[in-house]
Design a protein around this nucleic acid. Sequence first.
DNA 1: CCATCCACTAGACCATCGATCCAGTGACTG
DNA 2: CAGTCACTGGATCGATGGTCTAGTGGATGG
Lengths: 204, 204
Amino acid sequence: MWSRPQKAPRQTLTLERIVTEAVALLDEEGVGRLTMRRLAERLDTGSTTLYWHVKTKEDVLDLALDAVFCEVPLPEEADAWDTPVRELMTGWRAALLRHPWSATILDRPLMGPNALQRTESLYETLTTAGFPTPKTAAHALSNYVTGSVIAQVTWQSTDRFVRDRAAQYPSLAEHGLDHDWDTTFAQGLDYLLIGMAQAREGGF
Amino acid sequence: MWSRPQKAPRQTLTLERIVTEAVALLDEEGVGRLTMRRLAERLDTGSTTLYWHVKTKEDVLDLALDAVFCEVPLPEEADAWDTPVRELMTGWRAALLRHPWSATILDRPLMGPNALQRTESLYETLTTAGFPTPKTAAHALSNYVTGSVIAQVTWQSTDRFVRDRAAQYPSLAEHGLDHDWDTTFAQGLDYLLIGMAQAREGGF
DNA sequence: CCATCCACTAGACCATCGATCCAGTGACTG
DNA sequence: CAGTCACTGGATCGATGGTCTAGTGGATGG
């Protein structure tokens, strides 16, 4: 009785396989070409079969997005509060950039277990760091990361377009061209962290 | 000869009318229900007619999004550099929030004339304020606004869902529930501006 | 050993969408 | 008055998300 397997060991097609393959498909061909049929084909099955494991296509996207967050390393404790924060935000950004399609679906609730775990970690760090309003600080940080990733992915995808219009819009060209995205991100993050630290000392 | 009208005065259907109606449709029913057919129907015409004025549906979205940026007031000059910046960012955010569908299409290049004009204004303000790297500062600011709007729209659209899971994920509930979005945004913006000011004095 | 059950699968099918083809239409031009 | 051209619309195409219906095959229980 007790040694009996809990569930049917059938499982030729599992949710996990679906998600893995969906991420692979998204990585290779982008969000515009993710189709239930194409995904099913890659899994050597019919599209109907997918709908037994998943209710809608949006479920697939939600799962794929949360799978990306799984790649974000959870920082260890450190003496300075800003060290783990910087780590978390940098890893967060890196994971999203590794899967550029994720930037275009960041407009959906990040409520997968992996995403929640990262948010939780951020809150915890800020709270133990003594911020009176960790909620505000957490929002500022995650919003900045989200915006940064979207901006970078967008501009990189239209590099050619901008280059053609560089003469017409000089500061547009400067805004999006030959851009060291990493250092710009880090610098902006520093702005935020400096401001946060100063505000905390001021007690608000 | 000179008094002759330049172009054919036919124009029963104009690009302007299309954009206006598209924004109205998006406001009323959201981005998911914007269809070329539905849009054409609202304009009392066939869907084919739209394609004479516009190449693809994406064009319509681009135009609608830029129409939103038209609502962002361009700040006047001021003594303190942060005053016009705060004005511009607040107006930027307000315009996007007035049309929540815009948040879900912020992953496309903001290259309409209205959006460019706002970006230009931001650069100009930061440059005359003496920032050594206005590009970095401008990115930090606009990224923060973008992220903030997306977060707010997303969380507000899933308020019910979060409320149901409040017990299960306490800090999730705190993160997204009963949230004074305006003050949180303003506070985060202050973080940024404080950090930027301090960094400028430090000369980097 | 066999009937039953159920997790799981597949092909046909539906409504809808973005986009195009093709056949006009009517106001202005020369 | 014939011709042009900006402009319009109905029919249509291929693809998509999703459902209906009819299975299939391995484990279960008697």
